[in-house]
């Protein structure tokens, strides 16, 4: 199911097979398939007549794209300036040691992907943690374990 090319065709259809929509197409593929499978990119290359290398160039340039499967839950630690001055680095290193995974990685049991983002625009609530689009504001290390429990 992960490399269901029908889904890719559907997305291509929606974007009218436009080369200029490549970023939008990749975003849609990722939101449907959780990451960018190589098979899907190969298919894209043939349908849009773009060299595979060029697709990889775009897919690796933009931070939002993932070439590996992600965990069931995505934890994003905001490292924007406002969060930084309120200690978001500490939140990140605490999470890294708790989950035994480095930022950008996924836990072995595929339950969590740990990511960093530059700013989510909810600076009043820093340090900010987002798990699957749910915002947890004013984070401190001692609240973390309890929050993670809900997702384990």
């Amino acid at each position: 199911m992960l490399t269901d090319l029908g889904t890719v065709n559907e997305i291509l259809e929606k974007h009218g097979y436009q080369r200029a929509s490549l970023i939008g197409i990749l975003q849609d593929i990722q939101s449907r398939m959780n990451y960018l499978p190589r098979k899907a990119l190969l298919h894209l290359s043939r349908c849009l007549d773009i060299p595979l290398a060029e697709i990889y160039e775009v897919a690796t340039f933009y931070k939002a794209f993932h070439l590996e499967p992600k965990g069931r839950h995505t934890i994003q630690v905001c490292l924007g300036t406002a969060c930084h001055v309120r200690g978001s680095r500490r939140i990140l290193s605490y999470l890294e040691s708790l989950l035994e995974v480095k930022a950008g990685g996924t836990t072995k049991d595929l339950s969590f992907s740990l990511e960093t983002v530059n700013c989510l625009g909810a600076c009043a609530l820093g340090p900010l943690l987002v798990i699957d689009r749910k915002y947890y504001g004013k984070m401190s290390t001692n609240r973390m374990e309890e929050i993670l429990k809900k997702y384990r």
Binding site: I23, G24, L26, V58, F61, K63, A64, F65, V117, N118
Partner: peptide, 8 residues
């Protein structure tokens, strides 16, 4: 509308 890809 075009959505960015997370590049500053």
């Amino acid at each position: 509308i075009n959505r960015g890809g997370g590049a500053f």
